[in-house]
Amino acid sequence: MALRGADLDVFEGELLMIVGPSGSGKTTLVSVITAILAQDSGRCEVFGRDLSQMTQRERARFRASSIGFVFQMFHLLPALTSTENVAVPLLIGGVPRREAESRAVRALEQVGLAARAESLPPQLSGGEQQRVAIARALIHEPGLLVCDEPTSALDHATGQGILETLQDVAKRPNRAVIVVTHDSRIYSFADRIARMDDGRILDIVSGEDRANLR
């Protein structure tokens, strides 16, 4: 059993960080929240919907419409350009290709990568790849953005830039951001920090108290 009584609320407009040592259950928790894994017991409600009642197909649709993902290793498709990568969630959602790519170009402009729209992932720096990944995660305007170790493959300065972008994203209407990390240098960007260990949420610290975690 990877989670043992994790009790957590995530609010609109906040950037919540989930921190803890390896094996503490962070990844399992976000997998449940994002309808990737189904919990054996307990209740997980996202946007008023009980995930445990969903079929596999409903879970896939839910992820496609409501969740954005940013991964540690970016996981961009290497054969696709930045624009095509960003358009993928829209194509999964059934948006016509031309419209999807036009929206993708605008999304890239918002993250400052308009000039790299036609570049392939291997031609981009780590920071640029992560910004493409953020544009991809936000293109379908999900209510929840989940970022898994978004800065660990980046140098400190680039990581700080990415967190500033995520902080900005969290402030947009009808949006919340969850960041899973154990990089204490970025705790300052969190509105709240949930500490986990052994499948439990030990405590949730507000932004003002984050200094105690260091």
Partner: peptide, 16 residues
């Protein structure tokens, strides 16, 4: 497989 997993995580159906 990781790339397929990414697509699956993003909501791509098995049929897709």
């Amino acid at each position: 497989l990781k790339q397929y997993a990414v697509l699956k995580a993003m909501g791509a159906s098995p049929a897709m």
